[in-house]
Amino acid sequence: MEHIASFAASGYAPDRVQLFHGAPLEAILPLLADCPVLRLRAGESPPEAKDRQGRLYVVLHGALGVTPAEVRPGGERGFGTVLPGECTGELSVLDHGAPPDHVAAQEDTDVLVIPADVLWRMVDECHGVARNMLRLLSFRLRAANAQLRRREKVGEFYRQLSMIDGLTGLHNRAWLNDRLPALIDHAHASREPLSLIMIDLDHFKRFNDEHGHQTGDAALVAAAKAISSVLRPSDFSARYGGEELTVLLPGTGAQAAKAVAQRLCEQLRETRVFEDAARPLPHVTASMGVATILDGEDADGLVTRADAALYRAKENGRNRVALA
């Protein structure tokens, strides 16, 4: 790092600095007389950048990289690049309690350093500088809001991704645990029915033993596609765990839900795991238990009754539907 000179002696034109656009130079230059210009080598930071006195850094040549102070080590880096004519550090001037951002030269860079007291004097004495500061802060606010919106979208994308079963493409157990109570609350509030179908692929362990686990995975995928093909857009399907699947039918009473389950049972009965005639064509069947929400019933109660109906279907010979 090299202390070149004060700004007044540095030879840089002040009208190329955004902060000074439209401001009378005769009012600005005397205030900048003692403000130093530093030459930073690539990777160097101004020595004052670590304290909390508050300083504005104006890039005259080169580029500064800025990372917010709240970013922890190992977190997001390269928050922004400050190019010639632009500045950074205004928040440390406005809020003395705010920790300074991390500032480092991305290449050999000349930086004008304006202490907080000098900047405030310019704001007080020059309306043009005050106006430019407001524009700068408005830009920073819009940029921060845009970044927050991007992070929210990315966060929502990964949240939704975490709710999908990687094998079948159906919703997973986490989604069911999150969504089912909300659907039940809506059903109680609207006085509309809500039905749940518990599905268990029959003798799936034996299927895996006979055909291999990869074929078992293919059978789960085929079953998921078969189930999805029967449902309405307003219905939901999820992988409960292992070879157990669930279907949620909003606005559907017991008898209509039983009819849907019977169609699902028939669809699975006809579904082949492989369509390639050169390979064995194993198929799967399923047992299903249907339960419709009762007054005051919660998610655990509904699942428990559907599960009991499922086991009754198994006890009665499998490949069939039982109603709770």
Rank of each mutant, 00 (worst) to 15 (best):
Q214P: 02
L137V: 11
G169M: 10
H96F: 11
A261I: 02
N145E: 15
E125Q: 15
A105K: 00
R55S: 07
K50F: 13
E44N: 12
Q255P: 07
D15F: 06
V221E: 03
D117T: 07
V58A: 01
R305Y: 02
G253I: 01
S45V: 02
V290F: 01
T88H: 08
T304I: 09
A222Y: 07
L64A: 00
R305N: 06
G253D: 03
W120E: 14
K258V: 01
E90K: 12
L60F: 00
N172S: 14
V273W: 01
P47D: 15
L40F: 07
V37R: 04
A238D: 06
A308D: 06
E297I: 05
C265G: 02
W120V: 10
S162F: 15
G251I: 02
A308M: 00
S10C: 10
G85V: 07
D95Q: 14
Y311S: 05
R39S: 05
E156T: 13
A322F: 02
S195E: 04
S228T: 03
R149V: 11
N172H: 14
I199L: 12
A286H: 09
R159M: 14
L323G: 00
Y311W: 00
E210T: 14
V284G: 09
S229Y: 09
S234A: 13
V93W: 06
Y57W: 13
Y311E: 04
A5I: 04
A130K: 04
S162T: 13
R16D: 04
E315P: 03
A189E: 12
A313K: 00
R206M: 14
Q214G: 08
M163I: 08
M198H: 05
V221G: 07
P84V: 08
V221C: 04
L64V: 00
Q106I: 03
A277N: 08
G65P: 03
R279D: 00
T292D: 05
T304L: 11
R279I: 08
A277T: 07
A9I: 05
V93Y: 06
T81Y: 12
C265N: 08
F157Y: 15
L119G: 00
A224N: 03
V103F: 02
R191V: 05
I227P: 07
T215M: 15
V129R: 06
L19M: 10
L119N: 07
V103W: 02
A63Y: 03
V129C: 07
E76K: 13
G54Y: 08
S234K: 01
R135N: 15
A254L: 05
V93N: 02
H102P: 05
A27F: 10
K153D: 06
L264I: 02
A224M: 09
A174H: 15
R72E: 14
